Amino acid sequence: MKILVTGASGFIGGRFARHALEQGFEVRVNGRRAEGVAHLLRRGAQFVEGDLSDPHLAQRLCIGVDAVVHCAGATGHWGRAQDFQQNTVQATENIVEGCLKEHVRRLVYLSCASIYRNGRSQLAIKEEPLARRFADAATRSRHLAEQKVFGAAEFGLEVIALRPATVIGAGDVSWLPPLIDLQARRRLSIVGNGLNKVDFTSVHNLTEALLSSVLADPAALGKAYNISNDTPIPLWDVVNYALRQLQMSQVTRYRGYRSTWLKGAVNEGACLLWPGRPRPRWSRHGAHSLNADFTLDIARARHYLDYQPQTTLWAALDEFCAWWQAQ
């Protein structure tokens, strides 16, 4: 089987491509940074550089492949709506059209669990129903991209979408690094009472889920799946564990949620006015995610994908910390 992996120069796409190569699959990778896939080329991957907003490139990538694992897309929650539209929605639409034109059998789309967030604490979230309104342009673009994917099922494309909780492991630059940076500056505080429980996903478990999706039986098709370690843990225990491993001071100060949310709103407003619109160190999304309970129900993935989390969160954190120190 030949698999195309988009976003392979990123954290999750790169880890899945390496896992697929180790399992003996023929792998073609796409990314924006050639240096980000050098380790995959040494393992035998074929690299095609380019931007997925180009429909001709997307179609060329799909020539001769049996399955596509689409991990590319805009990351984070800060940015212009048109950028999320181009890098997430348009790129996904081009990949879908490429799959249909080149008769690719299966498309696995990497979405995210953030599309569930509604500004409140949420426990044991199921895949349906989704909120009618989305918190920001990033989550809205992920939902629209999912719709593009599932819409292709009526034309014969086999489709699956995965919605992982926050992914932890070597190579993560999205979740822990900004918190480490804030603590190094003595500007990180526990938001709320510090007892909020959340789900995380080891990148090893996610790569296994992606591979299971590529090989899944027909009964699993046409569905979205929550993916996590299924062991909700107080978020600030996780943060402080990582800080201890990195020999940094613990977060002990507390700050109210409302004041943190307002600080985020002020920071966002200032960054909108600043030339280049830099990413704010605090945001309303960040205040909510550091304060609210957020756990997923993964029963559907267990049933249809035979998903069984094997790598613990603590092992994933140890892996991240070893990688971070080596940087």
Rank of each mutant, 00 (worst) to 15 (best):
R281K: 13
E102G: 05
A170H: 08
K126P: 08
G14M: 13
V96Q: 07
A72H: 01
N267I: 00
L61M: 06
A145P: 02
R279Q: 12
L100V: 04
T311R: 03
H103G: 07
R106T: 05
R80Q: 11
I160A: 09
L110S: 02
F25T: 08
R244Q: 15
H56F: 15
T166Q: 11
W314T: 15
L210G: 00
A131H: 14
L40M: 08
I12D: 01
L110H: 00
S213A: 15
C271V: 04
I3S: 02
L40R: 02
R244W: 15
R284E: 09
K126N: 14
A38M: 12
N267C: 14
L243T: 07
W282R: 06
G276N: 13
T139E: 14
F11V: 12
V65T: 04
L4A: 01
A224M: 14
V159S: 03
A170V: 05
Q327N: 12
H103W: 04
G119W: 12
L273E: 08
L246W: 10
L296V: 09
L176P: 00
L162S: 08
R105F: 03
R106E: 02
R80N: 11
D293G: 11
D136K: 04
R132T: 15
Y257P: 03
S283T: 14
G10I: 01
S121L: 08
G73P: 03
A58H: 01
A8L: 09
I190V: 15
G73F: 04
Y109P: 00
N240R: 11
I160Q: 02
W324G: 02
V108Y: 00
N226E: 06
Y304N: 10
Y307H: 10
G50V: 08
L272S: 08
V167Y: 01
Q46Y: 13
N30W: 00
A220G: 10
R43P: 02
Y116A: 00
A270D: 11
A287N: 03
L110Y: 03
F150L: 08
S9W: 01
P129C: 12
F11H: 07
S121H: 03
H19E: 13
L21D: 00
Q147E: 15
N30T: 09
V266T: 11
V159Q: 01
E93D: 12
D230H: 13
I63W: 08
D172A: 05
T311Y: 14
N193D: 14
V239L: 07
G192K: 07
A219L: 10
E158T: 09
T231M: 07
V214S: 01
D297I: 11
Y307S: 05
A91Q: 03
E268G: 13
L107P: 00
V238N: 04
Q308D: 06
F11E: 08
D230T: 06
H77T: 12
S228L: 05
G286S: 14
S289R: 06
L206W: 02
R33P: 01
Q82D: 15
A124G: 13
G31P: 01
Q122C: 11
Q82R: 14
I190E: 05
A219Q: 11
S9C: 13
Q85R: 06
R105N: 12
A72T: 05
G222S: 10
W282D: 10
R185L: 11
L107T: 03
